[in-house]
């Protein structure tokens, strides 16, 4: 029963392969390097320094007032590379807030791509009506043991996880959990 079901999924994947191939030429032209093509608009939520490099002790290129409009180019850890008034520099990520209008769903381009990817059918069991993760849907849901069994097949063991980490040059670090910030609750 289970094997049959997995076989069925594999067939679906084969169908998906040629469907995806049709779109591949379109996708090849897309460079999905995150921010680069997005050019998302953000503004500063506090006065902040524009730095030449993403470090606190880097040279200061200028001082941005609160609510200065910037264009986000890239992120490096806690720093965002931005363009403002013809200058390119770095500001602390959390001194920024995105402009809600400029950051639409799937601005990275992945949304379109996933719609293609998932159009080949899905492993949903035969049910009627639209389901989802709304409050009401969660209260009326029924178990889906078939999907649960499929989920189990995706599991990765510890040694596979370690291989995956070395392939990405990820090194384990020793660091303790952080205490609640001294100043307490939210502002």
């Amino acid at each position: 029963m289970m094997a049959k079901f997995i076989e069925l999924l594999k067939n679906k994947e084969r169908v998906m392969k040629w469907k995806a191939a049709i779109f591949l030429s379109l996708l090849l032209n897309m460079t999905l390097s995150g921010w680069a093509q997005a050019g998302e608009i953000a503004y500063t939520v506090r006065a902040t320094e524009l730095k030449a490099r993403p470090f606190s002790d880097a040279a200061t290129l200028g001082r941005l007032m609160q609510r200065t409009k910037v264009e986000v180019v890239a992120r490096r850890s806690s720093w965002m590379q931005v363009q403002v008034d013809g200058k390119t520099g770095w500001v602390k990520m959390l001194s920024l807030k995105f402009n809600q209008a400029s950051n639409k769903a799937g601005s990275s381009g992945l949304a379109t791509l996933f719609n293609v990817a998932s159009s080949g059918g899905s492993s949903r069991s035969a049910t009627t009506g639209v389901r989802g993760l709304s409050e009401k849907d969660l209260k009326n849901t029924k178990p889906n043991p078939r999907a649960f069994a499929v989920m189990q097949t995706y599991a990765v063991n510890k040694s596979e996880a370690k291989q995956f980490a070395s392939a990405g040059k990820l090194n384990s670090q020793s660091v303790g959990y952080l205490a609640e910030s001294a100043s307490g609750g939210a502002r």
């Binding site: 999924l9 679906k12 998906m16 996933f114 998932s118 080949g120 059918g121 899905s122 492993s123 949903r124 069991s125 389901r131 989802g132 993760l133 849907d137 969660l138 849901t141 029924k142 178990p143 889906n144 999907a147 649960f148 499929v150 989920m151």
Partner: peptide, 8 residues
């Protein structure tokens, strides 16, 4: 998984 299917 009864409320939302797995991404295929």
């Amino acid at each position: 998984l009864g409320a939302a299917p797995l991404l295929d």
